[in-house]
Nucleic acid binder design. Structure first.
Lengths: 191, 191
DNA sequence: TTAATTTTATTAACAGTGTTAATATTTAGT
DNA sequence: ACTAAATATTAACACTGTTAATAAAATTAA
């Protein structure tokens, strides 16, 4: 009864963990049903006894990565000052996370996602990490509410653009330039 | 001699045209060697007598689309005032082009490209369309040279981000909001 | 025009993909 | 130990890109 449910949940976990390992390592290009199943220790068709299809497995991995990324960001911004400095620290560690795991970037922004709910969660993810700091800037009257609304949107889009260019088009060509580009973005949007 | 060269060039054209049709229509997801060859009126293996592999065909299509997009933009900005208004007109028609052909967006920004040269051409494409207007803003001393350098970069990244969110994550959900987001981006970066 | 040669196009094959249906194996309950 | 239920596996299908061997067509030489 509850025992079978537990076992089932464990097996599901093996598949999810295998998927995440491949995505972290070889990337989404190397992802295949047979590859996942082999790493999980099962035959490829067994996967379909636990998941509707590959996209369900991908969505579940994505949610895990979201938590992982949030934790990484929270670790890195510990001693940042609220407002612009902390927003910058968040953006930098957010970008660092995806530079470390390009396969996860593909999941978040490129791969076709099954549910619209997951879609929305991804789109608002970076912005939600900065929520407190945007409010800080409003509360301390450094920018108006509409100004902040605009700047939020623009920073989110610019950050995705920076990541895209770096990971998908190798521009800029090295990491130090990437950091400089983030500086540029921050100073242009929040002067 | 020159006759065979002509014939060869024509056959290559049929394959390229077929590739472009599929990308414009069904999108890059529907692209396959067999699909292309069938539409070109040849067997799938014939393709390899004219092109190294599929990626070469894709790169050649991309270059065509680049010209096509430039033409479309130039048509739309005819009566725009130099500077910010024209830059906005360029960004809007640039975005419109990819909204019309999402498969071409995949080519430009997502698909793995063979040559680094093509890669760089893509990355600098939007910025090159705005070149004159950025210079106008410098010459008329509306912004400083460094300011413009920063704004260029930020606008390029933000525009790619806007496109990504709209085409890949359905955010915003309708076109009128997309136009509003472009306004927001422009006013934030070029106030 | 026929024969030989070169150019161009096709089919067969290989290793891979996601997914489903039918089968085999393992576990649980009596 | 035997039956029933749960779980796992193999076989198959329709795809994918790519290569090698073969067939067809066009060109040249006699």
């Amino acid at each position: 009864m509850t025992n079978t449910k537990l076992k089932e949940e464990r097996t599901r976990g093996y598949f999810i963990e295998a998927t995440k390992e491949i995505l972290r390592g070889e990337g989404s290009k190397a992802l295949s049903v047979r590859n996942i199943a082999e790493r999980a220790g099962y035959s490829y068709a067994t996967l379909y006894n636990y998941f509707k299809d590959q996209t369900e497995l991908i969505s579940l991995s994505l949610l895990d990565f979201k938590d992982e990324c949030r934790d990484a960001v929270n670790q890195n911004i510990r001693k940042s000052k609220p407002g612009k400095p902390e927003i910058k620290a968040i953006v930098v560690s957010y970008i660092n996370y995806f530079v470390q795991y390009p396969g996860v970037f593909d999941l978040f922004y490129i791969e076709k996602l099954a549910s619209k709910k997951v879609n929305n969660q991804v789109v608002s993810f970076l912005d939600s990490l900065c929520e407190e700091d945007w409010n800080y800037l409003i509360d301390n009257q450094i920018y108006s509410k509409t100004e902040i609304e605009y700047k939020r949107k623009t920073l989110n889009n610019a950050t995705i653009g920076v990541l895209m260019s770096y990971l998908k088009r190798s521009t800029p060509s090295d990491y130090s330039e990437l950091l400089r580009d983030i500086d540029v973005t921050m100073d242009t949007i929040l002067p």
